[in-house]
Amino acid sequence: MKIEDYIVENIAELTQLKFSPGELSSIGNKMSEILELVEDMQTVDTTGVEPMSNPLDATQILRPDIATSENRRDVYQRSAPETRDGLYLVPKVID
């Protein structure tokens, strides 16, 4: 599948990346190559192979329902650009 410029533009918007118009086709070409690799992989016969969501042959270990975290707001907010009244401040979001 060929990744056209408009697809690159759409993905760039979703991922909040900015590319110059000149970059679009070379990025599109690289992405197309990745998809070609996937297409090659799809020729492998996987009949009878169970799909997996994780490469490890294990299941999740669970945690007891106990509130263990202490309030470390001051430490965390030290690395935030702007805070007020305990809130993190970001540029005004309208929607």
Binding site: R63, A67, T68, S69, G86, L87
Partner: peptide, 21 residues
Amino acid sequence: NSKIFSGASTAFGAEPNTQAS
């Protein structure tokens, strides 16, 4: 008592960001 993926408390009405791990 605690969040789905962390040990932070779920108690209602706490000061902002005091229960964010």
